[in-house]
Design a binder for these strands. Sequence first.
RNA 1: CGGGCUGUAGCUCAGUUGGCUAGAGCGCCUGGUUUGGGACCAUGAGGCCGUGGGUUCAAGUCCCACCAGCCCGACCA
Length: 421
Amino acid sequence: MKQSQLFTKIKKEIPSGEVAKNAQLLLQAGFIHKEMAGVYSFLPLGLRVIEKIKHVIRKELNNAGCQEMSMTSLQSKDIWKKTGRWSDDVVDNCFKTSLKNGTELGLAFSHEEPVAQIMANYVHSYKDLPFSAYQFQTKFRNELRAKSGIMRGREFLMKDLYSFHVDKKAHDEFYEKMKGVYMEIFRKLGLGGNTYLTMSSGVPFSKYSFEFQTISEAGEDVILFDKEKKVAINKDDFSDEIFVDFGLNKDDYVFEEAKSIEIGDIYSLGTKYSEAIDLTYADAEGKSHPVFMGSYGIGVPRVMGTVVEVYNDEDGIIWPEEVAPFAVHLISLCKGDAEKGVVEKVYKQLISHNIDVLYDDRSNVSAGQKFAESDKIGIPHRVIMSPKTIANNTFEYKKRSEKDAKYMSFDALLRIISKTY
RNA sequence: CGGGCUGUAGCUCAGUUGGCUAGAGCGCCUGGUUUGGGACCAUGAGGCCGUGGGUUCAAGUCCCACCAGCCCGACCA
């Protein structure tokens, strides 16, 4: 894409009214627009990042045999009444509205009930199990207080996966597998190094669950973790009891304490929802049993915000390659028509190699401004073309994460850039 | 939902004990000089001073209410 066509602009000042670093950097560089507290629109650059994150998640889940679907945000209160979650005393962050005729509706904050309701139409026999289905879908949560930029929104895109098994044993096997799948997702998203599978207290219907916590000062949680052994426990749940329950010896570990961001969670739901919704199957003897369920969430904007919190410097964002809005920022410092033509050709050549490239073709902007803005956007690879480099028949390449540039041939450049694509 | 802070130009902000026609920087328009780390000169446009009420000869400034934003706390399936 040509930068002259991009309607967003990079702002010089940090927007006021945001303390969260992720929101500051993303607003400043034109990735997002704030509609109201906790509600953000995604502009072209921001949407590209969202799509990249979705792509990584989708690929891993599909590989794991999960099926993608899409459920609705509008839900009738009846199914939530079945599980008691319509009551404000049970779930206090549900947005509620109504039809013209007065029928009450809720905006889905999660989809355990709807998905169980749907599956009740298709699951009748043990032969229909197991399976798992997920979606990327907007969730609405009436948080008492929005904070942390895009990391705790009132409206946000969530990947929610639900699993369906005949019994706990079959479920547990899948649950264990998902731990690995999730870690692989976060590794691919660039968060592997400082993300910990963390033991935590569960939802009311299972004593414990696991969270994926990324170490960051911007976090709202605190975990105790053993760096070497990769064991972590949410500070809220750190007790002798948890060690006993997991069969671990507390003395085997050296725990550090750090603030962290919960970027994912996986829950064993048991039969709570299937019993309430009447999602049952017949076993080989014809006896009826409730389906054993699990749910597995990743907040997509929260992952995006976390990446920004983890990867930035005083000049702006530094996107990991897997989630960067573009792979290459091609910056032209040329003014003459002939030289501009050369850059244009390189731009097209990169595209023909299937490389996402943002081409700063603006001719009325100073070099310094282009560099400063490029740093803010944070595209991992930068290629600079100037009359000098063209005359020398060389390409100037600089990584966003490094200070110094290198000069190389087009082929060498291509090798570096296309390594991850 | 409790406590605190803040709403003035597109953005970041200044605006004195209430006092004339509302200020700066950035951004934007126009013209010119520039071009390797947010260049410079000149010119111009741009305001319901969050909303409503009140006090006053006079309100951006004081008072009340409401709305919105931020922070701390509580909350976070």
